[in-house]
C-alpha cells in the first residue's frame, strides 16, 4: 500500500514560461479513488505524469511511498505506479492482444506463472478474453483503449493512474472502466483518473479534485464539489454538475450528484414530512 504526496509541485515545460502545474499540494492515501477534473490545459496530465517520474518537478517534491520520485528511475516507479495514457495508439506495438498485455508485466520482472495469471485476469477484466490472438489493429478504437488499460492492469501496481479512460468509449466501455476501478479499489489499490464525464466521476470516485490553470480549485467528495455553493467555481472552469445535482437543486435539495443520492434525499424528505402521530 502506497501513499502519494505532492508538495508545492510546480512544472514549467522546456521552451515555455507557463506554469503548467502551479503550486499543487496533494496527498492521496492508500486505496483512495480520486478523480481529477478540469479543462484541457489545466495541468491534469502534467500533474499525473509526475507520479511515475515521467516528468520531474521544476519546483517542489513528489513522494511515492515516502521516497522522493526524483531519485528513482521510471522503470523502478513503474512497479508501483501504473499509468495508462489517453491515446492507445501511442503504445500499441505487439502483433497480438496477449503479447501487448504481457509487455508491461514482463518489464516489471514478473515470473512466468504470475505473468500468465495477471495477463489472463487483465484480459477478463476488460472483456478482451476472447481476443488473445487478435491483432490489436483489428480492434475498434474503444477496445484498443481497453487493451491499453489491460496492459497496465497486468502490471499489478499498487497505484493505478488513468488518463481519460472514458473518452471516446461507448456505454459498455464506460461500464467496463467503472468495474475495473471498483475491482482495483476492492483489492486495496489506489486509483487516480482524469475524466471529463461528470456523471461517471460522481458514480465512481470518493474524491474529486478540480483543476484550473495549474492549480487545485476544489477538492472534496462528489457531494461536496458538486454542491450548489461550488457551482460558481465549476462554472468558471466550464464544468457542469452532473444531471441529478441539477434536478435536485430544482427540487430544493443539495448534494445529489448521483441518481441514488437524489432518491435517498427524496426519501429522507418524504419521511420527514410524514406527520408523526
Amino acid at each position: 500500500m502506497i501513499e502519494l504526496r505532492l508538495e508545492g509541485l510546480v512544472h514549467v515545460y522546456r521552451d515555455s514560461t507557463v506554469r503548467a502545474v502551479d503550486g499543487v499540494d496533494l496527498q492521496v492515501g492508500p486505496g483512495q479513488r480520486v478523480a481529477i477534473v478540469g479543462q484541457n490545459g489545466s495541468g491534469k496530465t502534467t500533474l499525473v505524469r509526475h507520479l511515475n517520474g515521467l516528468l520531474r518537478p521544476t519546483e517542489g517534491r513528489v513522494l511515492v511511498d515516502g521516497s522522493d520520485a526524483a531519485r528513482l528511475h521510471v522503470a523502478q516507479l513503474a512497479r508501483r505506479v501504473g499509468l495508462v495514457f489517453q491515446d492507445p495508439d501511442r503504445q500499441i506495438f505487439a502483433r497480438s492482444v496477449r503479447a501487448e498485455v504481457e509487455f508491461g508485466a514482463r518489464n516489471v520482472g514478473m515470473d512466468r506463472a504470475d505473468r500468465n495469471d495477471a495477463v489472463s485476469q487483465a484480459l477478463a477484466a476488460t472483456g478482451l478474453e476472447g481476443e488473445s490472438d487478435t491483432n490489436p489493429y483489428d480492434l475498434g478504437d474503444s477496445r484498443r483503449k481497453l487493451l491499453a488499460l489491460a496492459s497496465v492492469l497486468a502490471m499489478r501496481t499498487p497505484v493505478l493512474v488513468l488518463d481519460e479512460p472514458t473518452t471516446g468509449q461507448d456505454v459498455r466501455g464506460v461500464e467496463i472502466v467503472g468495474s475495473v476501478i471498483r475491482a482495483a479499489h476492492a483489492e486495496g489499490r489506489t486509483v487516480i483518473a482524469i475524466s471529463h464525464d461528470m456523471g461517471f466521476v460522481a458514480e465512481t470516485f470518493d474524491r474529486v479534485v478540480i483543476m484550473r490553470e495549474g492549480r487545485i480549485v476544489l477538492d472534496g467528495s462528489p457531494a461536496g464539489v458538486f454542491a450548489q455553493r461550488a457551482w460558481s467555481t465549476l462554472e468558471e472552469t466550464y464544468l457542469e454538475p452532473p444531471f441529478p445535482s441539477r434536478v435536485g437543486a430544482r427540487l430544493g435539495l443539495d448534494s445529489t450528484p448521483t441518481d441514488e443520492a437524489l432518491i435517498a434525499r427524496l426519501r429522507e424528505r418524504a419521511s420527514d414530512s410524514v406527520p408523526s402521530t
Binding site: D170, V171, V174, F243, I263
Partner: peptide, 25 residues
C-alpha cells in the same frame, strides 16, 4: 443495444422506479 439513455430519461426512470413519479418531481 449498447447505447446510453439521455440523463433525463435515465433519471426519470430511476425516480419512477423508486416511487417518485409524481408531476412536480
Amino acid at each position: 443495444m449498447g447505447v446510453a439513455a439521455p440523463s433525463r430519461v435515465r433519471v426519470r426512470r430511476a425516480l419512477a422506479g423508486a416511487g417518485f413519479g409524481d408531476g412536480a418531481i
